[in-house]
Write a protein that binds this DNA or RNA. Sequence first.
DNA 1: AGCGTGATGGGACTTGGTCTCATCACTGTA
DNA 2: TACAGTGATGAGACCAAGTCCCATCACGCT
Lengths: 189, 189
Amino acid sequence: MARWQPNASERLVLAALELFEERGYENTTVIEIAERAGLTKSTFFRHFPDKREVLFGGGTMTGLLVDGLDAAPAGASPLETVAHALDVIGKKAFTPDRREFGARRSAVIAANPELRERDALKQLSLTASMVDALKRRGVPDLTARVAAELGALAWKIAYERWRDTANDDDFGQLARRILNDVRAASARC
Amino acid sequence: MARWQPNASERLVLAALELFEERGYENTTVIEIAERAGLTKSTFFRHFPDKREVLFGGGTMTGLLVDGLDAAPAGASPLETVAHALDVIGKKAFTPDRREFGARRSAVIAANPELRERDALKQLSLTASMVDALKRRGVPDLTARVAAELGALAWKIAYERWRDTANDDDFGQLARRILNDVRAASARC
DNA sequence: AGCGTGATGGGACTTGGTCTCATCACTGTA
DNA sequence: TACAGTGATGAGACCAAGTCCCATCACGCT
């Protein structure tokens, strides 16, 4: 019998998600999560810096976003650049097999203030990364900030819709449509 | 000798701000904050739900914002409505005598991840309040969300500038100018 | 078989945060 | 002046998050 089962992180994530669904985030201790995953508290904190982060791990999102922005065609407008990045992210991170997990995760986050707070921080830091990447492409500061905010909004809406609908809509196309709507709406402000 | 000095909350806020400046947020315990304010840990948590909140108290901001939005002239466009609200907030919350405190507070927040996280949550919930208030005025959903994001961005930029400049610029006028810039920038996206 | 590496277990420790009960200051009333 | 009620505070037990250090075990390599 192997002492080290594989995929310790994934097991911790799944155990945490289940327990949060069953009794709620604040009625679940880190020790309980670890035990359900066949591990201990020490090991939990070796995989995640804190209890909240178990639902926000990976952190690869920022990398994908920045890659997508950097890889956009040179002549693209700021919002076209963002759309390109959302396309890349959609293909690599929002695959259909992750839809159910995303929905369950979102429900748990929505139900708890601490998790919503962490979510807010992630959103903000993603927006900040977008601003930096756009500025690196030569987009002036204020334009970059506006484009990043609009892009982040489109992302958020697209994610909500992708997560809540059963059909296999491609996230990239969804985001593109919504980004167009957002652009149109910004003209009516 | 009175046992109850007045302004317990204010004393706690000031003590916390000083200690965070001196040794940093994470090297300061709640007990130390309370002691400097001549109080105890129990009393601290009676005034603030947690350690972070000592720098985010009041919470009157949301109320002022919503009031300002509701009080805007009926025919105003979404962004004009937001500008009106920023005017109201500027007059009531961003008075010159609060500038120094705001600057010190911002520096402390910027230096600590936990505080930045709380700040992110506050920003997000303010934006959500704006969306609700705009929708209550009849603004369609997507337009409201876009206007709120642009307004929040203008607010953030205006606040940074108001806080960092010594001259007594009126916050409302500052925000109005920046909101115009933001609107112009959104057309260039 | 022996060795080094890396992931894990275990437990002590600090601190944030909750809860309960006692205590004190202030107010009004007789 | 005496007394009771109210509200803010103090004191301390208690739990869970998070840190730290050290021992232990599995695995690959020689």
